[in-house]
Nucleic acid binder design. Structure first.
Length: 584
RNA sequence: CGGGGCGUGGCUCAGCCUGGUAGAGCGCUCGGUUCGGGACCGAGAGGUCGGAGGUUCGAAUCCUCUCGCCCCGACCA
């Protein structure tokens, strides 16, 4: 490609709205332009990168038996009603009506569409397993698009779905996809962690996320420095030092006045109070299940621990949880936040004709001599022995892991919490979709069984943006060789000098003949402009055809190392071929 | 959805508080000089100030509404 007629509108100045590095560089390098909030146009340079990423994805999907489909973006309401997701997707789904008034939506994901084909066409276990995928635009009406391509409303996703006759088959398909994902992200030049994650609204039994560590990401993950344990904070656990309590005095909690005490902190300082790890934190939540019913829930944690709401929702099997409003708390507990506790609460609710669930974090197990609110403003209870005094319905993991805590998986390690970007997510769906949509096959015994499904997604733009987040410097992007838009750029420092122009053109032909993707900078610009632009768009190698070329020498510049070496004109083509084909 | 901010030539921004019908740098066009790290000189083109309404003799500037975008939070298969 000749730069003189290739559209790369680079920007000298930083666009005002761009905050994160990848967004700034995508704009400055002339790769993308915004059309609306969270909606971007991909200009030729970024599309070259996206195509290379998609090609890698395709190769690895095909290598595990994947077959590529292309499903419609436009979906009828009826399809989504079948799984209940027309309602469940809420405001995140783009919806529209056709001229007849029929409801349609833009696909956010394609479980329903793929399962629809599966149920009509798959009859026997002999046809399984199937591995189906597509690379297709997805639409999500995000509440807050942000960070350039990292959080958008329209994006390209590789989504794959596997269909197996039983859970052993699903395990195999899941493992195959996992391996394929490892190859894909490795080939794309990304360092990643595979973490345990919550399945959320996708349903299913297990899921793993592929995370890139970067401050531009929005997820928090905990990783162990010793054993490689890694988990999303919504799943992460840690080992805590066991606290040995003194036995509670007397046979029942003792109420005592605590005027003005509203917080855990207040109670630590209050004379006769308690340290945070000897307090029970009591939070009132309203849980909503899948059918929309609401139920109040008491979440109990150690005073110095933080609740993770996703864990609470997962533990309850709830679709959603939210903190109760002050009036709801007052109504339910008879006191305001600051004086709440689990003792006697259940009976109180029951006598008012209400059911209140009490969920407690594992760290409170077997604790005694604790202090908590008395459900009476300005009063607390001391000497609380949890299992004696509080009727806990469910013991589960509720707390948010902190940096520096001990790894749950090994002896030596400590956990570090860091920001990460999700680039891939794989789910074992089980029969959630096949059951609700009636996708069944006959197994070896002639028995009709719902197919076991898996679902596997990769965000194509996120790979591109993550590569920039990970690989850039003050001058611009430094593409991993595997996904660079070109392998090499040939920069003719002055096209008005015929001998330089000719040498550049010849080199361009030679490199292309060798099978390389070459960008020839034949623009009538000053050398400085060309160098700056080449650095900005991040081509891995630059060959400078300039003043030394009359003596038969060119410079070979390594963008990542920022080092330049003189190479003879005769040898440079072979040299670049060797470099470009090495590794990646 | 809650909080904050911004919308003025293609880009970055000044002007707004203290109304008097627009300005800089970059970019672009033409001419000249330059020519290896975003050149210099000269001459130009280009905006009615997001939109609507209002106050006023007069509105980019004040008021109301509205649309869009960004940031923080909530949310996020």
């Amino acid at each position: 490609m000749r730069w003189s007629n290739f559209f790369i509108p680079t920007l000298r100045e930083v666009p005002a709205d761009a905050e994160v590095v990848s967004h700034r560089l995508l704009l400055r390098a002339g790769m993308v332009r915004q059309l609306a909030a969270g909606v971007y146009s991909y200009l030729p340079l970024s599309w070259l990168v996206m195509r290379r990423i998609m090609q890698i994805v395709r190769e690895e999907m095909d290598a595990v038996g994947g077959q590529e489909f292309l499903f419609p973006v436009l979906n009828p309401r009826e399809l989504w009603e079948e799984t209940g997701r027309w309602a469940a997707m809420g405001d995140n789904m783009f919806r529209l009506q056709d001229r007849k008034g029929a409801d349609l939506c833009l696909g956010m994901t394609h479980e329903e569409a793929f399962t629809n084909i599966a149920r009509h066409e798959l009859r026997s276990y002999k046809q399984l397993p199937q591995v189906w995928y597509q690379i297709q635009a997805k639409f999500r009406d995000e509440a807050r698009p942000k960070s350039g391509l990292l959080r958008v409303r329209q994006f390209i996703m590789k989504d794959a779905y596997t269909f197996d006759v039983d859970s052993n088959g699903l395990d195999k398909s899941f493992a195959d996809q996992r391996e394929a994902y490892i190859k894909i992200f490795t080939r794309c030049g990304l360092k990643f962690s595979i973490v345990e994650a919550s399945s959320g609204a996708m349903g299913g039994t297990a899921s793993s996320e592929f995370m890139i560590r970067t401050d531009a990401g929005e997820d928090l993950i905990a990783t162990c420095d010793a054993c490689g344990y890694a988990a999303n904070l919504e799943k992460a656990t840690s080992q805590l030092t066991i606290i040995i309590d003194e036995p509670s005095a007397g046979g029942a909690p003792e109420e005592f006045p605590t005027p003005g005490v509203r917080t855990i902190e207040d109670l630590i300082l209050f004379p006769g109070g308690a340290s945070a790890d000897r307090q029970i934190k009591t939070l009132v939540y309203i849980a909503t299940n899948e059918t929309g019913e609401q139920q109040p829930v008491l979440a109990l944690l150690r005073g110095d621990h933080q609740l993770h709401e996703t864990k609470l929702a997962d533990g309850l099997g709830a679709a959603d949880v939210r903190p109760a409003h002050p009036e709801e708390i007052r109504d339910l507990m008879g006191a305001s936040a600051g004086s709440l506790g689990g003792v006697g609460t259940k009976q109180r609710a029951k006598s008012a004709g209400r059911d209140l669930r009490i969920v407690a974090d594992h760290a409170l197990k077997n604790r005694s001599n604790m202090t908590t609110g008395a459900n009476k403003d300005d009063h607390h209870l001391r000497g609380v022995e949890i299992e004696r005094d509080i009727p806990v319905d469910l013991w589960t993991d509720l707390r948010t892991v902190q940096s520096g805590e001990h790894c749950p998986n090994c002896e030596a390690g400590t956990l570090e919490v860091s920001k990460s970007l999700e680039v891939g997510h794989i789910f074992k769906l089980g029969t959630k979709y096949s059951k609700s949509m009636g996708a069944t096959v006959l197994d070896q015994n002639g028995k009709e069984v719902p197919v076991m499904m898996g679902s596997y997604g990769i965000g194509i733009e996120r790979i591109m943006a993550a590569a920039i987040e990970l690989h850039h410097d003050a001058d611009g992007i430094i593409w991993p060789r595997s996904i660079a838009p070109f392998d090499v750029v040939v920069t003719i420092t002055n096209v008005k000098q015929p001998e330089l122009k000719d040498a550049g053109e010849q080199l361009y032909r030679d490199l292309r003949a060798a099978g390389l993707e070459v960008l020839l900078d034949d623009r009538d610009e000053r050398a400085g402009v060309k160098f700056k632009d080449a650095d900005l768009i991040g081509i891995p190698y630059r060959i400078t055809v300039g003043k030394k070329t009359t003596e038969g020498t060119v410079e070979l510049f390594d963008r990542a190392a920022k080092q330049s070496t003189d190479v003879s004109l005769a040898e440079v083509s072979a040299r670049v071929q060797q470099l470009a084909l090495a590794g990646s």
